[in-house]
């Protein structure tokens, strides 16, 4: 397949000979097909400022999610204060990776949703919970991709089901969704998922995992991501939502910010030529 979008939808020259661009007054000529000025309309082709992986997992009484605070402009580490974990309602967290401007758009959409829910819930008691937020976001993202104008993100929604079991589910810019006891977006799905699955090999096993074990796995994953993902930073946020100890019908929501990757070891670097500033 030819991956250049400007070539899409045309009969292949190899099969049909040179395409006649006068047909249907096609405006892009073969000669200057790279000229965006002559292209009739174009939507987002790539993200600009990006956030890297979000990782999350379930444990016995809740969920834990982490994302670093970096906004990259290409390979430039442009912003180091981007909060990518968005709280929705009282017991739901939405972690967003991908384009930061689209993240901010999603933040506005969710804020509006929360407001309408609160205002029109006349008798109270109809809470917006994680499965509802997830379904809604999946509709928004799928709708945008169907307009060929996607919100360039991969998102993890964490919270609780109606029956108070932990909920964790993924959505991406194509509208694809799936759920698991261990989830990660982007590079994290290569680097962090294997580490998280050491703790939770099968989906149902999350009930055997304590908050402390989950926390340790998250910290370890964030460290490995910082080592190996060049778009990751060592400053990150963690959200933990769990059933309250004194009242199991309510939840405690903790949002820790400005955490640092601990116990870094760079000993391996001293023998590697070209690693760091020192020229050997």
């Amino acid at each position: 397949m030819n991956h250049n979008p400007l070539q899409w939808g045309r009969p292949s020259n190899d099969t049909y000979g040179q395409y006649n661009h006068n047909i249907a007054n096609a405006s892009v000529r073969e000669a200057d097909h790279q000229s965006l000025d002559s292209f009739p309309k174009m939507n987002t082709q790539q993200p600009i400022i990006t956030g890297t992986s979000v990782i999350a997992l379930k444990f016995k009484d809740g969920i834990i999610m982490a994302a670093d605070n970096l906004g990259s402009y290409g390979s430039l580490l442009r912003f180091n204060n981007i909060e990518r974990l968005i709280k929705v309602g009282s017991e739901t967290i939405v972690g967003v990776s991908g384009d930061i401007s689209d993240l901010q758009q999603i933040e506005r959409i969710l804020d509006e949703l929360e407001t309408t829910e609160e205002v029109y819930d006349n008798d109270g008691g109809h809470n917006l919970r994680a499965p509802h937020v997830h379904e809604y976001l999946s509709r928004v993202l799928y709708n945008r991709r169907s307009k060929m104008n996607p919100l360039w993100n991969a998102i993890i929604v964490g919270g609780f089901n109606d029956d108070k079991t932990p909920f964790l589910r993924y959505i991406d810019l194509l509208g694809v969704t799936y759920g698991s006891s261990t989830l990660a977006t982007g590079f994290g799905s290569h680097l962090a998922i294997p580490l998280l699955r050491q703790l939770i090999p099968y989906d149902v096993d999350y009930v055997k995992v304590t908050e402390e074990e989950a926390r340790k796995a998250v910290e370890n994953s964030m460290r490995v991501l910082f080592y190996r993902d060049a778009r990751a930073a060592d400053k990150y946020s963690v959200v933990t939502i769990k059933k309250s100890e004194d009242d199991p019908s309510s939840y405690t929501f903790t949002h820790e910010k400005d955490l640092r990757v601990q116990n870094q070891s760079w000993k391996f670097a001293k023998d590697i030529r070209g690693y760091g500033s020192k020229q050997q």
């Binding site: 029109y120 819930d121 008798d123 509802h132 379904e135 809604y136 509709r139």
Partner: peptide, 15 residues
């Protein structure tokens, strides 16, 4: 059901 994956609440329906 489609947008929020939840049944319509009675109060919302009647309002």
């Amino acid at each position: 059901k489609m947008i929020f994956n939840r049944p319509l609440s009675t109060s919302k329906a009647v309002l």
